[in-house]
Design a protein around this nucleic acid. Sequence first.
DNA 1: CACTTATTGATAATGATTTTCATTACCGAA
DNA 2: TTCGGTAATGAAAATCATTATCAATAAGTG
Lengths: 143, 143
Amino acid sequence: MSAEFWLTQLHENGYRITGARRAVVETIEKSTRALTPVKVYDMSRKRYRALGLVTVYRTLEKLEELHLIQRVHQPMGCQAFISAGHGHQHLLLCKKCGQVAFFEGDDLESLTKSIAKKTGYQIQDHWLQLFGLCKNCLSNQQA
Amino acid sequence: MSAEFWLTQLHENGYRITGARRAVVETIEKSTRALTPVKVYDMSRKRYRALGLVTVYRTLEKLEELHLIQRVHQPMGCQAFISAGHGHQHLLLCKKCGQVAFFEGDDLESLTKSIAKKTGYQIQDHWLQLFGLCKNCLSNQQA
DNA sequence: CACTTATTGATAATGATTTTCATTACCGAA
DNA sequence: TTCGGTAATGAAAATCATTATCAATAAGTG
Ligand SMILES: [Mn+2]
Ligand SMILES: [Mn+2]
Ligand SMILES: [Zn+2]
Ligand SMILES: [Zn+2]
């Protein structure tokens, strides 16, 4: 899943490929942690100087609409984005450095069935997110 | 868990009990759906006219600090609050009317163990939230 | 009741996101 | 390859949400 694919997706959906979009796409696509609009702006400006913050917002909007990125919710705030997982995946976030990993294979079948029965709700979606410490932060830990 | 208990909690933690706080507490404590600060403000003003929005923010802050309320994250926004569950509970939200139900009994033991092994992360917390349609919205559904 | 001081609401300040608008440049058609 | 319609851009202003300031008020202890 390369930046080129994202650009192709934009193009195939009637959006033009511009220098600004290229810079934003390349920045987010290769990041392994969630980035706020301002962070995306700062990082992308190294690739495309004339970039405006407004364009970052507009590009994020389109990438989210095409399901190429997703918003990341955290206790400290929910304005960060990261590349969307493939298929049915959830996020695992490092509380210390922000490193993000994807995981899959959660099976909530029996749980949702039981909850549906108990509450009378028809359950349609779920959000699951794990928090902890990544391998790297674990080993760099002081005693 | 009555409004009086919340007020007692505030008092026991060195906070004064005021008309403004009484109004805010009573509003949130009896709500079965997540409320934004402005919504809390509008609803509470029916109980206490002189209430200021700033005081709503300040009161929410304290109630969250005492774990009496919790922030609710949703696709449409994350600035709403609802009474905190008791013990280890998660939320089930109606996508149509916003009705909130609590549930417990999720067992993520084996999942987190397996993910920890695969990723090398030490997993500490989890967020789980279910979305669907409540009993009421289900039955009021048009064909 | 009186006094100390936390709390209040109005207002201003800040921060984040969205809108407006004139200019630029992408890209399909010729 | 050039051309032209129009999507996209960035600067600036507007809007919306949240936080800080501050003088006036009122909770609650004694
Ligand atoms: Mn899942
Ligand atoms: Mn749980
Ligand atoms: Zn959130
Ligand atoms: Zn409902």
